[in-house]
């Protein structure tokens, strides 16, 4: 696996497209247990992300990821702004100065993103948040790293998907959904869903034709 700055920009643009395609779906999930703005907020944020990273091919991967984070922080509006913003900024710091990323770099930046989200949201696994999709994915990447990046990446996507689906069985303890208490049960978390969509898109981009 080798990702240069141009490829990284392509991956982020693909993520932005995916989020925009799923704007209504994410908002619908959020209207059930939150403030009905996750899809709108995320697509607004990623629109600015694409504007800011376009033409950054000459910059290193860390700088590009940090730019993504800063754009999300200043434009999203909801909690996903500081959360995903911190994740991307930490990911950028983890690969600072690198013009090319390998599989080990990917693990490093995903770990840093997870730590950033947990720190910012003061959240752990099982609280019906982004962490429920992201943490299993990072764990799967590390657990299966010996099998090579393709196999590990596929495992990570599956783990994120299971984590996302499992949020239906979790009572919300963070954010607006926590006001619903047990009435949040049965609903899939919008944050875990957007996180899964990002991981799936990244994997598809990295695997090329080999389906995730």
């Amino acid at each position: 696996m080798a990702v240069d700055s141009a490829k990284l920009i392509d991956i982020i643009k693909a993520i932005a497209d995916k989020i925009t395609e799923n704007r209504e779906y994410l908002t619908e999930l959020d209207s059930a247990i939150g403030d009905a703005d996750h899809g709108i907020n995320m697509s607004k944020g990623f629109k600015v992300v694409v504007e800011r990273i376009s033409g950054m091919e000459g910059k290193d991967c860390g700088t590009i990821l940090k730019t993504v984070g800063m754009a999300l922080v200043s434009t999203v509006g909801g909690a996903s702004g500081p959360l995903y913003g911190t994740a991307f900024m930490r990911a950028g710091q983890a690969v600072d100065g690198k013009n090319q990323l390998n599989f080990e770099d990917l693990i490093l930046l995903m770990e840093a993103a997870l730590e950033g989200i947990k720190y910012r949201g003061k959240a752990g696994r099982g609280e019906k948040t982004i962490v429920d999709a992201l943490e299993p994915a990072v764990e799967a990447l590390k657990l299966h790293r010996e099998k090579g990046f393709e196999a590990a990446l596929k495992e990570a996507v599956e783990a994120a998907k299971r984590g996302m689906e499992d949020t239906k069985n979790i009572m919300a303890k963070k954010g607006r959904a926590s006001y619903l208490g047990e009435r949040s049960l049965g609903h899939q978390d919008p944050g875990a869903t957007s996180c899964y969509l990002m991981i799936e898109t990244m994997a598809l981009q990295l695997l090329g034709d080999k389906k995730a």
Partner: peptide
């Protein structure tokens, strides 16, 4: 308070 484009929300930059 609110986002720069008039939605409900907050901005760290602001």
């Amino acid at each position: 308070a609110g986002t720069s484009d008039g939605r409900l929300g907050t901005s760290a930059e602001e």
